[in-house]
Design a protein around this nucleic acid. Structure first.
Lengths: 115, 115, 115, 115
DNA sequence: TTTT
DNA sequence: TTTT
C-alpha cells in the first residue's frame, strides 16, 4: 500500500541477457552505472559512479536482451524489495531492484534503432 | 549527473536514533516498513512488508531522533549508493539508502504534535 | 508510458461526497488544503495554503464519502490529467488531479476509527 | 508543511525559452507532453498525451533555455500551487506547476551533448 | 532487527 | 499551443 519507487538514468556496463525463464516468464539482469557529480563545501568537483543490478521480467526482459547492449543509456523506474538469506549459518539482508518500466534513451546495440 | 532517486511511504519499526556524530554532523538510522498489497492472476490477495535501513544526515537526523518513534508514518525521498566491502577475504556488494528529504505524515512519538 | 505522479498530504476543507455514479462506478470530489511553510531570504517565515480539487473513483470514492470529513488528514497519490474545454467560444486549458491511492492519517468523521 | 510534489517524465513540445527576468531572476516556461498508455477492461490499448506548462526559475531556467529544445526528454520534479484570478468579473481557479529539479535524460538541442 |  |  505504501509508495515504493526508484528512478534511475544510467548506462549498461554489459549487454543485457536473459538469466532464466520459468514457465513462459523470462528474467533478465541489467547492470547499470549511474553517474554522480557533486561539488563539496570547498568548491571541489567530485565524480563517482554507482553500480546497480536490476531485475527485469517478462516482455521487458526479452526486449532488453534484444535491444540493450553495453553502453546503452536508459531511464528505469521500479520497486525496491528487501531480501534475507542465510550463508554459513549467518543471516544476511539485502535490497533487490526490480524494474517496472524501461525507456530506451540511446540504444548502443548494433542493428537496433532507438524506437 | 544521472537521475538517482527513491521514494517511500512507510512506518518506522523502531524509534529513530542518532547513530554517530562526526564533527558537527549527526547521522541517524531509520528502519522503515513499506507495505505492499497486490492481487495475483488468480485474484488472490497478497500482503508483504519490505524493510529498509535508511541513513539520515545533519539536522534531518536530529529532527528524526526528536520526533520519529516506532510506528511513525513518513514519506522519504533519497538516493541509492552502491557499496562494496570485504569480509573473510570475500568481496560483497550492497546498496545504501540515503535520505535527502523526510516529511512527517503521522508522528507517533509521545509529546510531539504533527506540526 | 511517462512517469506522471503527484503526492500530497493535507486536510479536507469539507466533507467528501459522492458527486455522481455512472454504471456502478462512483466518483467523489475531495477538496484538499495543503499547507506550505517557508522562510525567505530575509529569514522571514511565511505560511500559505494551497487548495486542490481531487477526483476519486470507485471503491476509493465510496470509502472517502463514508470516512473522510472536513478536517481529515490524508496522504494522496495520483495522476495529473490535462483538460481543455470551450467557454464563450474561447478555448481554456486546465489540469485535473485524479487520486490513485489514499491513506487515512487522521479521520475526523464521527463514528469512523482510523483503521 | 504538507507534502506537495509532482513527478513527470516527458518530451518538450517546443524549445524552452526565457519568459521574463525580474531583478536577476530568470523565469522560463516549459511545455511538456507526458505520454500515457493503458489497456482497458476489454483489453483494448489506448494512448493519450497530457500537456503541461511548467514554470522554471533562476539558473534552472537559464540552463533550460540553453539546453532544452523541442523533443528533449526530461525528468521534472516540482510543486503544485493553486491560483485564483478574475476575468470578466468571474472568479477562476487553476493549478500552477513549478519545477524544483530537472534532469536531462535526452537533450535534442543541436550543439548540446547529454552532459 | 520488524511497522500500520 | 502539441512531443517520442
Amino acid at each position: 500500500m505504501g509508495l515504493n519507487k526508484f528512478l534511475f538514468t544510467g548506462n549498461l556496463t554489459r549487454d543485457a541477457e536473459i538469466a532464466s525463464t520459468t514457465g513462459d516468464r523470462a528474467r533478465a539482469l541489467i547492470r547499470l552505472a549511474v553517474n554522480d557529480v557533486w561539488t563539496d563545501e570547498q568548491g571541489q568537483r567530485h565524480e563517482r559512479a554507482n553500480f546497480f543490478n536490476i531485475t527485469v521480467w517478462g516482455s521487458d526482459a526479452e526486449n532488453a536482451a534484444k535491444y540493450l547492449g553495453k553502453g546503452s543509456l536508459i531511464f528505469v523506474e521500479g520497486r525496491l524489495a528487501s531480501t534475507e538469506w542465510e550463508k554459513d549459518g549467518e543471516k544476511r539482508y539485502g535490497t533487490d531492484l526490480v524494474a517496472t518500466q524501461i525507456q530506451y534513451v540511446d540504444t548502443k546495440k548494433p542493428g537496433s534503432d532507438n524506437a
